[in-house]
Amino acid sequence: MADHVMLELPPLADSFYRRPVALVARELIGATLLFRGAGGPIVETEAYDHEDPASHSVKGPNSRNRSMFGPPGHAYVYRSYGLHWCLNVVCGLTPGAAVLIRAIEPLVGIEEMRSRRGDLPDRQLCSGPGRLCAALGIEGSCDGHDLTRPPFSFSSGPSCSKVLIGTRIGISQASDVPGRFGLAGSAFLSRPFR
């Protein structure tokens, strides 16, 4: 997909984010994420609801997760294990729900991504939430940012009929919940689906 074609895709409407978290997570597959002009189609997500024991919001708002309780269509960015930034899309019908963006297919600004991540194959640049944020330069200052405004751009993509559904990765609670979504056949997933 050429850069100019990706930039012409219609932006996701505010109403897109005001729907059930699992639906948003599934329908973000194929949508395009750009941050300061670099990015590509989203190929993997995970859904976290406010009642989910694995969610950061299950015990209510605090200084770390306050963005999860803000308006849908905003970023919740947190540091995982004190090492990696992770980008979530706040969404849902009730406060405290968000979609973790786990992987994209890097198509725009690849050299810029490599300048941050090293001379890696395209497949390894953004295949995981920490890698994705490192490649795009997303960090804690993005927490709470409106995703419908620069430096973010979320655009609709083609409807993906072949979306895989599986259990989420790297959690100790509710690890059997089928809340992970991925583009079937993508070489850019963080891990294969079983």
Results as ranks from 00 to 15, higher is better:
residue 134 A to N: 11
residue 151 P to F: 04
residue 35 F to G: 04
residue 114 R to G: 02
residue 11 P to K: 13
residue 21 V to D: 06
residue 113 M to P: 09
residue 93 L to G: 05
residue 71 P to Q: 15
residue 42 I to Y: 08
residue 66 R to S: 15
residue 136 L to D: 04
residue 73 G to T: 09
residue 151 P to Y: 02
residue 161 S to V: 13
residue 165 I to V: 12
residue 37 G to N: 11
residue 110 I to N: 03
residue 148 T to P: 10
residue 173 Q to R: 12
residue 93 L to P: 06
residue 13 A to Y: 02
residue 69 F to L: 09
residue 105 E to R: 03
residue 115 S to E: 12
residue 41 P to Q: 13
residue 5 V to W: 12
residue 130 G to M: 02
residue 93 L to A: 11
residue 3 D to N: 05
residue 32 T to Q: 10
residue 95 P to N: 07
residue 39 G to Q: 00
residue 101 I to T: 00
residue 155 S to Q: 12
residue 57 S to V: 07
residue 167 T to C: 13
residue 39 G to L: 04
residue 32 T to P: 13
residue 131 R to F: 13
residue 65 N to Y: 04
residue 157 G to W: 06
residue 77 V to R: 05
residue 121 P to W: 07
residue 82 G to W: 03
residue 167 T to E: 11
residue 104 I to Y: 06
residue 31 A to E: 07
residue 58 V to C: 11
residue 167 T to G: 08
residue 127 S to R: 02
residue 88 N to E: 01
residue 92 G to A: 04
residue 183 L to Q: 14
residue 132 L to K: 14
residue 169 I to C: 03
residue 138 I to W: 01
residue 148 T to Q: 13
residue 34 L to K: 00
residue 101 I to N: 10
residue 162 K to D: 14
residue 118 G to Y: 11
residue 46 E to T: 01
residue 32 T to A: 08
residue 192 P to T: 07
residue 32 T to D: 14
residue 128 G to M: 11
residue 19 R to A: 00
residue 193 F to H: 04
